[in-house]
Each structure stands twice: as C-alpha cells, then as structure tokens.
C-alpha cells in the first residue's frame, strides 16, 4: 500500500492535519477521518451533488477531488453553516418551504444554493434551476427547493404557490 501523505487544511474554521493515503477522496477524508458525516455520498460519477461543500468560498463536489488537492484550503461543510445554533438563512428557508424530505440531498443542496446566491443574489427561477442542475433530489420534485432558494434571496416564488 502506498505511503501516506501529510495534509493540512482548515475545515469549518478549525485547522486539521492528518496523514492519508494519497488516493483518499476529499469526501471520504471529511467523513471518515474528520467525522464530518453531514456531507453525503450519493453516487460515484460526480453526478448527484450530495457531497457539495465550499472550498475557499466556492461550491465544489468533494467526491470529485482528492483530499490532497485541498491541501491548505479553507473548507466549509454543512456542519459549519449554522452559527452558534442559529440556522443559516438558507437552512431556514428550506425548513419554511419544506424543501427537504429524507434530507439526504439536503446538505449538498443547501451548500450549492448558498454559493449560488453568493454569485447571483437575485436569481430568476430559471437561474435557480440551472444553478442546482448538478444536485439531484429524489423526494421533493424540486418544487419546494426552488421555492426555498427564491425565498432565501428575498423573492417570492412566482407560480410556486402550492
């Protein structure tokens, strides 16, 4: 088995250093080594977005890169989004709009959605759908997810009444 390599990175404001196999995927490092199991794995082809996190402020699929590629990075996972017990406005919007059912896609969806609003604070419905295209949800039909993101952006969901 290949030699381990040393990694340092900041995750949710805490610095970590660890020795990992070079082939370790970032998502497995976060989940299995750091115990941050909020980031989920829903596929093996970078298709579902369940593993979405923020790396240096931008959303990324943590199953698509090696932990080693995130050396020195500043990472935020779903566990780092709520500050001192207060839900982040996006989390609050998902709750209020019933944007989750089983919750499995939710951490990735919320991370992708917050990054979407960082880049485009007032997206149209179409832009929200396009921005979340890489995140699959099997439970909600996306209706209430799109509503939640529009609501978190301070817009009401046209046509999304029911």
């Amino acid at each position: 088995m290949s030699d381990k390599i040393r990694l340092e990175m900041t995750v949710n404001g805490q610095s970590h250093s660890a020795d990992v196999e070079p082939r370790t995927l970032l998502v497995h490092f976060l989940r299995d080594d750091l115990g941050l199991t909020g980031t989920n794995v829903g596929c093996d082809t970078s298709s579902c977005g369940a593993c979405t996190i923020h790396i240096d402020g931008e959303s990324a699929k943590s199953c698509t890169m090696l932990a080693a590629q995130a050396r020195g990075a500043n990472i935020t996972t779903i566990e780092g989004l709520a500050v001192s017990g207060e839900l982040h406005p996006m989390q609050q919007a998902f709750m209020e709009c019933h944007g989750l059912q089983c919750g499995y896609c939710t951490p990735g969806m919320v991370m992708a959605a917050t990054s979407l609003l960082n880049e485009n604070p007032k997206p149209s419905e179409h832009e929200v759908r396009e921005g979340l295209e890489g995140n699959l949800c099997r439970c909600t039909g996306y209706h209430n997810i799109v509503k939640a993101v529009l609501s978190a952006s301070g817009q009401s969901a046209q046509g999304g009444g029911a």
Binding site: T37, T39, E79, A82, M95, C102, G103, Y104, P107
Partner: peptide, 21 residues
C-alpha cells in the same frame, strides 16, 4: 406545520448508516 425532523437534517446531524462507525 413545519417539520420537527428538519433542523437535524439541515445541519448534517442526521445519522444515516454510512455515518455510523
């Protein structure tokens, strides 16, 4: 009524099988 399940699931506290070791 909003769901009482949600805060856990929204913050990554929900424990699925692969999260338990």
């Amino acid at each position: 009524k909003l769901r009482k399940e949600d805060p856990k699931l929204l913050t990554g506290e929900g424990k699925y099988v692969d999260d338990i070791h």
